Amino acid sequence: MAQKATKTLAASNTSRLNQTLYLTLFIHLLYWALRGILYRSTFTRRSLLLYLLLSAPQLAIQFLFERQSRPVLTPDGALTRAGEDLEAKGLTEYMWDVVYWTYGVIFFVAVTGDWAWWLWSVIPAYSVYAAWTTYTGMRGGYTDAAGVPQPQAASKRQAKMEKRGDKKVAYR
């Protein structure tokens, strides 16, 4: 049972990357099939350029995930590297949001037409919103929702001592 966490991470990464690869192939092939059937192969230069430009971030993120998170095995099947954790918080989580939102946008474009590419503008708008709220939170000293600064919370021991009326200890 040596390196159980590493093996678990490798199995989880492999499963998630395979699922994402199959979903990407399905969504993109569905786009090409529906655009060919519904619109009788009327691909214009504009629609092709929009498809390439706005699906490129999703494909780049997927390539990045493949490079960083796909487990590496030796020829005899031993695990060399488990890869980065695909369930990490922060930037990885945001990149998954971009991938899944792009899937939805590609589907809507395939069904309804090129006007649905405007749905993709939600991603940069959300990025600006998240950056702004983070900036104002840091600038404001981490206030609550009403804008009132939060005082430093005392430990349970300090709260008990203050309740009893004990004097605070002065450190030198």
Rank of each mutant, 00 (worst) to 15 (best):
Y22W: 15
S41H: 04
T102N: 02
S55I: 05
S121M: 12
A154M: 04
L59F: 08
Q19H: 06
F26V: 07
Q68M: 13
W118G: 09
T102C: 00
R40L: 09
A154S: 04
N18Q: 12
Y142G: 02
Y31H: 02
L52S: 05
G147I: 06
A125R: 01
I123A: 14
Y31T: 05
T143D: 07
R172F: 15
T14W: 05
P149W: 12
L17P: 03
L29P: 00
A56Q: 06
T92Y: 07
T143G: 03
G90N: 00
R157S: 07
I106G: 00
G137D: 10
K4L: 15
A5S: 13
K7G: 10
Y135I: 11
R81T: 10
T14K: 09
A11V: 07
P149T: 11
L64D: 15
I106T: 09
K7E: 11
L53M: 11
F108I: 03
E66W: 11
A145Q: 04
L21Y: 14
V98K: 01
W32P: 02
A159H: 05
F65K: 00
E84R: 13
A33T: 08
T8E: 15
G36T: 04
A170S: 07
L17D: 04
Q19G: 11
R35T: 01
Q58S: 00
A11C: 09
G140I: 06
D85L: 06
K156D: 14
R157H: 05
P57A: 12
L21G: 12
S69I: 06
A170Y: 03
L25F: 08
G165S: 10
G113M: 02
F65T: 10
R172D: 15
P151N: 06
Y22C: 04
P151W: 09
L64F: 14
T102Y: 01
A153Q: 13
R67M: 14
G90D: 05
R70F: 13
T92M: 13
M1T: 15
T8D: 15
L86A: 00
L17M: 07
S15Y: 15
A153C: 06
M1I: 13
L54S: 01
I106M: 01
D85T: 07
T92A: 00
V109F: 01
D114A: 11
D76F: 10
S47N: 09
S47G: 11
G147P: 03
Q152D: 07
I106D: 02
I61S: 08
L64H: 12
V148C: 11
I27G: 03
S15Q: 15
S55Y: 02
T14V: 08
K89P: 03
L54M: 04
V128S: 10
Y100L: 12
R40A: 14
A130P: 02
E93N: 07
P151M: 08
S121H: 00
R35K: 03
I123W: 10
A153R: 08
A60T: 12
V98A: 03
N18T: 13
A56I: 07
A131L: 13
Q150P: 00
A11H: 07
G140D: 03
Q150G: 05
L49S: 13
Q3I: 01
